[in-house]
C-alpha cells in the first residue's frame, strides 16, 4: 500500500543502483491507512515499562534444564521474602506446564477484571501471582486458537505476548520483588530477556538471575549454556543455586547423598558463577510445597535455614531492599 517516495532519508547502499524513488520501509509509513504496528508495539512496551516502574527488583529463576525444582525454589523464596516483610509478586512463565499456581496456593482464585489491569491472585504469605493455572480448565493442555497446521509459525509469538501481558497487564502495585519462574529451555531465557529489554527509551534487565541446577553432570552442562546466554546478554548478577543437594532426613542434621554427580560448587566453578545456595531435599518440605503451603523460611529445618539465608542474599543483592538502604 506504500506510495513510492524519495524522502525516506534512506541512503542507497554502496554499489547499488540509485533509483528515482525509494520504497519506504514500514517505519516510514504515515497517514491513516496503515496499522501503525510500530506504534502499537511501542505502546505495549510503554505499558510494560510503566508497570515495572513500581517493581523494586526483577528476580528471574531459571535453569535451562527441566525437573530441577525451579518452581519449588521460586515458591519458597517468594514466601521467605514475604516473611521478611517484602511485597512479592510471582509470574509463572511456564505457560504450558504451570505449577506455581498450586504451589503458592493460588488455585481457585478469581482474578478481578479492572480497566487498569487484572488484579493478581493472592496466595501464601500474601504473595501475589499469575499463572495459566488460573486461566485454563484443570487437566486441559494449553492450546491457542489459530490455524491448526504449522502452529510453530505463530505459537512462540503468541506465548511471548502472553508472558508480556502477564507482566504488563497485571496490577502488581508497588512491590519489592517480581519473581519470574522461567520454563525449561535455554531459548526461554533468551525470550524473556528479549521481552524486557526491547528497544525503547528504557533498557530493562533482570536485577538478579538465579540459575538452578542439581548435582548432575547433565544438568550442569545445560546450566552452563544458560549462563553463557545470560552473560552474553549482559545480565550483571547471576547466582547458582544447587537444588537437591543431599537428602535431609526429617529431625536430623546429617545429609545423605542423593546424586553422585558433581556438586553445585563444582558446577559453579566450572561455569564461572558464584554459588549462592545449596538446598537439600526434604520430603516434608517438598510435600508442603506441592500442596500449596510452601514453608519458605518457616521452622528450624535445614532447608528453612537455607531459604532464610537465600532470601537475605537476595535482599542484599542488586535491586534488593537492603542494597537500596
Amino acid at each position: 500500500m506504500a506510495e513510492p517516495t524519495s524522502s525516506s532519508g534512506n541512503t542507497p547502499r554502496e554499489g547499488s543502483v540509485t533509483r528515482a524513488h525509494t520504497v519506504r520501509g514500514y517505519a516510514d509509513l504515515t497517514g491513516e491507512v496503515e496499522s501503525k504496528i510500530v506504534e502499537q508495539i511501542g505502546e505495549q512496551h510503554a505499558r510494560l515499562v510503566s508497570r515495572l516502574s513500581e517493581v523494586g527488583a526483577i528476580i528471574v529463576i531459571a535453569s535451562g534444564k527441566g525437573g530441577v525444582g525451579k518452581s519449588a525454589v521460586t515458591a519458597n523464596l517468594a514466601v521467605a521474602l514475604a516473611a521478611r516483610g517484602a511485597r512479592v509478586g510471582a509470574v509463572d512463565a511456564d505457560l504450558n506446564g504451570p505449577s506455581l499456581g498450586k504451589m503458592l496456593g493460588l488455585l481457585g482464585s478469581q482474578l478481578e477484571d479492572r480497566p487498569d489491569g487484572i488484579v493478581p491472585a493472592v496466595g501464601v504469605a500474601g504473595v501475589k501471582g499469575i499463572s495459566t493455572d488460573l486461566l485454563i480448565e484443570e487437566g486441559v493442555p494449553l492450546r491457542w486458537k489459530g490455524p491448526a497446521h504449522d502452529q510453530f509459525v505463530w505459537q512462540g509469538v503468541t506465548e511471548a505476548v502472553a508472558l508480556r501481558e502477564f507482566i504488563s497487564d497485571v496490577v502488581w502495585g508497588p512491590i519489592d520483588y517480581l519473581i519470574i519462574d522461567i520454563p525449561p529451555g535455554t531459548d526461554k531465557i533468551g525470550r524473556f530477556l528479549d521481552l524486557v529489554s526491547e528497544v525503547g527509551p528504557s533498557h530493562l534487565q533482570p536485577d538478579q538471575v538465579l540459575l538452578v541446577t542439581i548435582p548432575s553432570e547433565v544438568a550442569g552442562a545445560v546450566v552452563a549454556r544458560s549462563a553463557t546466554q545470560l552473560l552474553e546478554g549482559g545480565v550483571p548478577c547471576i547466582g547458582l543455586i544447587g537444588n537437591m543437594a543431599g537428602y535431609a532426613q526429617p529431625g536430623r542434621d546429617e545429609l545423605l547423598p542423593l546424586f553422585t554427580g558433581p556438586s553445585a560448587g563444582d558446577i559453579a566453578d566450572a561455569v564461572g558463577l558464584e554459588l549462592w545456595s545449596e538446598i537439600p531435599f526434604d520430603p516434608v518440605f517438598g510435600s508442603r510445597t506441592d500442596n500449596g503451603d510452601p514453608a519458605g523460611a518457616e521452622g528450624d529445618s535445614i532447608v528453612a535455614q537455607v531459604f532464610t539465608d537465600l532470601a537475605e542474599r537476595v535482599e542484599h543483592g542488586p535491586g534488593g531492599r537492603e542494597e537500596k538502604k
Binding site: 491513516e32 496503515e34 496499522s35 501503525k36 504496528i37 502499537q40 508495539i41 505502546e43 505495549q44 505499558r47 477484571d113 479492572r114 480497566p115 487498569d116 489491569g117 487484572i118 486461566l135 485454563i136 494449553l142 492450546r143 491457542w144 486458537k145 489459530g146 505463530w154 505459537q155 509469538v157 503468541t158 505476548v161 502472553a162 508480556r164 501481558e165 502477564f166 497487564d169 497485571v170
Partner: peptide, 24 residues
C-alpha cells in the same frame, strides 16, 4: 499474535486481551 490490530487499533487494548482472546 504480536497483540496488534491490523488496520489500526480502534479501542484501547484491554488487560490480557491477547491471552484472553486466544486461549482455546
Amino acid at each position: 499474535s504480536l497483540g496488534v490490530e491490523i488496520g489500526g487499533r480502534t479501542v484501547p487494548e484491554q488487560p490480557l486481551q491477547q491471552t484472553r482472546s486466544r486461549l482455546d
